Computed example of a mutant assay.
Amino acid sequence: MTVRVMLISPARSTALREVRFDDEGPLDESGARRAALAADAVPGADRQLAAPDARCRETAAALGLRARPEPALRGWDLGRWRGRTLAELAEREPEAVAEWLADPAASPHGGESLRGLRERAGGWLERLAGSGGRVAAVAGPAVVRAAVLHALALPDEAFWRLDAAPLTLTELSGRAGRWNLRIGRPLEP
């Protein structure tokens, strides 16, 4: 039985605009407006889910989704780095940042490693694989990227080469351990 998983990256927030690690804050005014304008472009789904953070919940609501919270889609826990910029961290903790970028199992920030994020997103995706139907899920860019890594069996290092722009749709369809990918369709009115 084939399942189509439509991962929607949330609209912009202040943290995204300032290039800070996500602080799980709400959408900014522009992001909320753009999400509302994109509502008609969201494909229909049997199940509608959203990560529990404010940015994803608010995006789902603005898109007209009646999304239930899905804990497995929560944002990447970057521990004490939350809310800080990579440039700031590279200046203050260059060795820790280098380790984090080089080793998928590293978590010098005290949060979740890249490997842990990938396993969480991949586990969620595999649980959906046998269910069939269409699933729309609003999830942060890191979760979308980790799900793509899992679906395509890419090496962990490929994570740093992927991007999930705000209000884009990444579609995965699969069954029995085989996934196909349709990348980053913008949600536009």
Rank of each mutant, 00 (worst) to 15 (best):
A51V: 09
P52K: 07
D53A: 09
D53P: 07
R55M: 06
R55V: 04
R55G: 03
A60W: 04
A61K: 07
A61R: 00
L63F: 08
L63I: 08
R66E: 13
R66P: 05
R66T: 15
R68E: 14
P69M: 05
P71N: 02
A72W: 11
A72Q: 07
A72H: 06
R74H: 13
R74P: 07
R74E: 12
G75T: 14
G75E: 14
W76C: 09
G79M: 12
R80T: 12
R80G: 12
W81E: 05
R82G: 12
R84V: 05
T85M: 07
L86A: 08
L86P: 10
L86Y: 12
A87R: 03
E88D: 13
A90N: 14
E91F: 15
R92H: 14
R92F: 14
R92Y: 14
E93C: 08
E93I: 06
E95H: 15
V97M: 04
V97A: 00
A98F: 11
E99V: 04
W100Y: 13
L101A: 13
L101D: 04
D103T: 03
P104S: 04
A105K: 15
A105F: 14
A106W: 09
A106H: 05
A106Q: 08
A106V: 10
P108I: 03
H109Y: 09
G111H: 01
G111Y: 08
E112M: 10
E112G: 01
L114N: 08
R115F: 13
G116W: 02
G116N: 06
